[in-house]
């Protein structure tokens, strides 16, 4: 039982280092991952520990980075490809969606592509329209790809370690605003199961289903709601594929109300999918429409005011829950 204070970034780095120590076939391949230490310093000094043959700095060639990882995985390595920003995923979509995601199926189950594509997304750094997006829906919309999005320090560690044992390609999307998040964790404590949600807070009135940074915003909103006598359950998805819908269903059926919160844009997004599922599967139990709280259907601005205003935050989640609950429970 070793409690330690770690940042999200430390936890990711430790997960990579531990996996590389344990398995000599784990290699990192990406832009600026070695000498520079990673654009967000996640791979800092790993090159010193494991050498340039395992921490491979590449040219700025995202399609070939992902494509090389696919080939390396087919030939027996366990590559971790790094895509500096998820916004660049469009560059790689052929290798990711047409190759990595479909190889097992197209080849009749002969072989899988056990690779991890680490990347990061989201707002919070005034990084503008091409460096701030939440594009997880692209991945979730592609059968064959697993998708993990850690919200906590412990999950940053465990989900990445687990991703590196999975037989299928995992897209691992970190949140750029969480790298400095610091938590006291016990990494020796029982490891939460891959593919299961975490119920971060239990309440009787409504369920907030969310993931990544919005988990923290939902927790803040839940605290404010509690002050108003409204008790919210907060579900952290952790992995979007596999999706633990059984727990979501159980929790929604207990309260009869659900909100889905996502930083990605509203239309045809992750929140749309979850909301549709909850509406279909929990129909008999729902007291109110399932509400989506998601990013505006607009690009992200550099202006902090416009940037912050375009995605959900604690206040929007709180206000939405208050409107949803208006007149339905005694304060």
């Amino acid at each position: 039982m070793a409690l330690q204070e770690l940042t999200y970034r430390d936890a990711l780095r430790k997960a990579l280092a531990d996996a590389m120590t344990e398995n000599p076939d784990v290699v990192i391949i990406g832009e600026e991952v070695g000498r520079y230490g990673g654009a967000y310093a996640v791979t800092k000094d790993l090159i010193k520990e494991f050498g340039p043959e395992r921490v491979i700095d590449t040219p700025i060639s995202e399609p070939a980075i992902v494509g090389a990882a696919v080939g390396a995985a087919l030939a027996g390595l366990r590559p971790v490809a790094e895509l500096m920003y998820v916004d660049f995923i469009g560059m790689t979509m052929d290798q990711l969606a047409n190759q990595a995601a479909k190889i097992r199926y197209m080849f009749g189950g002969q072989i899988g592509v056990p690779m991890v594509l680490r990347t990061q997304g989201g707002t919070g750094r005034s990084a503008g329209a091409q460096h701030s997006q939440s594009l997880e829906a692209y991945v979730m919309h592609t059968p064959g790809l697993r998708l993990a999005m850690p919200a906590t320090v412990a999950d940053a560690y465990h989900l990445l370690r687990q991703a590196l044992t999975k037989p299928d390609p995992v897209v691992f999307i970190e949140h750029k605003a969480l790298y400095t998040l610091k938590e006291t964790v016990d990494l020796d404590a029982p490891v939460p199961e891959w593919g299961k949600v975490a119920v971060r807070r239990q309440g009787r009135d409504l369920v907030i289903v969310t993931y990544s940074r919005q988990v923290h915003y939902a927790m803040e909103a839940a605290k404010q709601l509690a002050a108003q006598g409204i008790e919210a359950t907060v579900i952290d998805l952790r992995t979007l594929n596999p999706l633990d819908f059984d727990t979501i269903r159980t929790e929604v059926e207990k309260t009869g109300r659900a909100m889905v919160v996502s930083e990605g844009v509203m239309t045809a997004g992750v929140a749309a999918e979850l909301s549709a599922r909850i509406s279909e599967e929990c129909f008999d139990f729902l007291e109110d429409p399932v509400i989506r709280v998601a990013g505006e259907d607009i690009p992200i601005s550099v202006s902090t005011v416009l940037e912050t205003g375009s995605v959900p935050g604690p206040q929007l989640i709180f206000e939405t829950a208050m409107k949803l609950m208006a007149g339905r429970v005694a304060a």
């Binding site: 070939a64 696919v70 087919l74 030939a75 290798q95 047409n98 190759q99």
Partner: peptide
């Protein structure tokens, strides 16, 4: 589409 895989296989 199959070209970059040989870079990865070469690395392996």
């Amino acid at each position: 589409g199959g070209i970059p895989a040989v870079v990865g296989a070469g690395l392996a």
